[in-house]
Computed example of a mutant assay.
Amino acid sequence: MIVAGIGCRKGVSLQEVLAAVESALEPYDLSPDSLSGLATAKLKAGEQAIIEAGNKLRLPVFLVDGPALQLVSLRGLTRSAASLSAAGTPSVSETAALAAAGQKSRLLGPRSVHGSVTCAIAVNGEEP
């Protein structure tokens, strides 16, 4: 399982989310077709661009609740004061990806930043 975790400011566009996902996948020679899903914090459920990106890519969007984000927060690679303040986690994109990818998940690297959107890629087990 490969999951792209998404964090963003309010009101981002579909194009920004899609560009962030593609940008985050590029260093690992992965394409959106290799993804099993997108993930974000449950508090981002109202961000239509994330839901639309899942629809466009034909992927489920996992909405991860606060306790699940907290369980994996020590495995994240980035510490953002803004994310800690807004979501109570060091990085929404990293922790959402880790939580959605499963118990044995790991990040391929730190989140990437694309304008107002962050994206992190997590894999479960030995993938890829």
Results as ranks from 00 to 15, higher is better:
M1L: 02
I2C: 00
G5M: 09
I6R: 04
C8W: 04
K10G: 09
G11F: 05
G11L: 01
V12S: 04
V12Q: 07
V12N: 11
A19C: 00
A19N: 14
A20S: 11
L25D: 10
D29C: 00
D29V: 00
L30R: 03
P32Y: 06
D33H: 03
D33Y: 12
L35M: 01
S36Y: 09
L38M: 14
L38V: 09
A39I: 01
T40S: 15
A41V: 04
L43V: 04
K44D: 02
K44M: 02
K44N: 13
A45T: 03
A45K: 10
A45M: 00
G46I: 02
E47N: 02
A49K: 12
E52G: 04
G54T: 07
K56Q: 12
L59Q: 04
P60F: 15
V61C: 09
F62V: 03
L63H: 13
V64Y: 10
V64G: 04
G66P: 02
G66H: 12
P67T: 14
A68K: 10
L69D: 15
L74G: 10
T78K: 13
A81L: 08
A82K: 08
S83I: 09
L84Y: 03
S85H: 13
A86S: 08
G88V: 07
T89D: 08
T89R: 14
P90L: 13
S93N: 05
S93I: 02
A96K: 06
A97D: 07
A97W: 11
L98A: 05
A100W: 10
K104R: 13
K104H: 12
K104F: 08
S105A: 14
R106G: 05
L107H: 07
L108N: 07
L108C: 07
L108A: 07
P110M: 14
S112W: 07
V117M: 00
T118M: 05
C119K: 12
I121M: 04
E126K: 02
E126W: 07
E126T: 02
E127M: 00
P128Y: 11
